[in-house]
Design a protein around this nucleic acid. Structure first.
Lengths: 194, 194
DNA sequence: ACTGTTATGGACCGGACGGTCAATAACGAG
DNA sequence: CTCGTTATTGACCGTCCGGTCCATAACAGT
């Protein structure tokens, strides 16, 4: 009944997210997005509403994807919970030491948000809570298995892992290499010793 | 022999740094800086050369100030090295949970730098190495005092502390409160148990 | 007081930015 | 085939941006 779109929203959001991850929200221009997505300005505007809205879409997708990935790494497999966390951290060390200058959109949003009541802040906060929840779940299993120190607080350990992973991401961006990041990841796991 | 300046460079750089810390490099406009510093555009330009150069000045100052502060916290006092680190981390937890939306210029530069060969990257990398060096020095003392696990690697632990502090900074920005950040700080110290 | 030199402030500029408009194209329904 | 609806395209717009120009002010030295 009407002219069909020539693009798939998911692909567009994904391409846009790539640009945002490399350049950041403020530094990305509409023309960058036009070039990266292949759409015209007006099509972009019709479908998403503008640069900021498109970023929010990309952010949501990135958040979901990240949560999915961590979930998969921590909640499945036959290794023990602590070993799963260990494997996850080592994989992150490798991922963050890739020199492709990407920064997760969540971190971008965190840094570029302009205030408490910013919409970016809201999405980012809930994203962090979601991540902490996933870590927390796995840590709970570890505790049940007796693999955590007796006095460990699962909640705060979960937040701790969110913090150390964000820190590793920044260090990777700063050029810290794979070996060093791996060492950091291994160090970070020492908090789990009992 | 010529008209004297009406401003003190240090103050101007400091005010500018404040703005950059809140808004970021890309999102700060020259007019923001004019308003924050009280100088005219031309004076700003004469004295510093432009927005980017001014940011670099502010970044250097911020880096020195941060290094000085950490140095002071870790290298003096009658407490043991490990206890000094502990106190330092607890103080950071409080600092990062202030809700004033600041992000250290080093983190800003890290996230907003546009490539490997970026001047921002260079300054930031050396800043991180400097910080790691300070942590490393204190950890060396701790090791000498026998307060570190026997198999601990001082180098990587130093990097680890840089990572966890950057992560805590981001979490603070995300709205994680003082109590939670303090718990994270305490957790992070568990890697030092022997 | 005069002069050389630098600082200052406000007007100004070219360009890029995010966003919009209007003409046209591509479809499905009838 | 025609019509209604929506997508697309490229030209266009007002604004804001970083940066510059220029006329003037404020000093130090003579």
């Amino acid at each position: 009944m009407a002219r069909p779109r020539k693009f798939v929203e998911r692909d567009v959001v994904s391409s846009a997210g790539e640009v945002f991850a490399v350049r950041g929200l403020a530094a990305t221009t509409l023309d960058d997005l036009v070039q990266a997505t292949g759409l015209g300005k007006q099509s972009l505007y019709n479908a998403f509403g503008g640069k900021r809205e498109l970023f929010l879409r990309a952010l949501s997708e990135d958040r979901e994807e990240a949560a999915r990935a961590v979930s998969e790494a921590l909640e499945h497999g036959d290794a023990s919970p602590v070993e799963r966390i260990r494997g996850h951290m080592l994989r992150l060390a490798i991922e963050f030491s890739r020199s492709d200058s990407r920064v997760s959109l969540t971190t971008r949003a965190l840094v570029e948000s302009t205030g408490e009541s910013d919409q970016l802040s809201a999405v980012t906060k809930s994203g962090i809570e979601q991540l902490a929840g996933i870590y927390g779940h796995c840590l709970e299993l570890a505790r049940a298995a007796g693999d955590l120190p007796a006095d460990a607080n699962v909640q705060s350990l979960a937040t701790y892992f969110v913090a150390i992973t964000r820190g590793m991401e920044l260090l990777g961006r700063a050029g810290v290499g794979r070996a060093a990041l791996t060492a950091v990841a291994l160090d970070s796991l020492r908090v789990l010793r009992n």
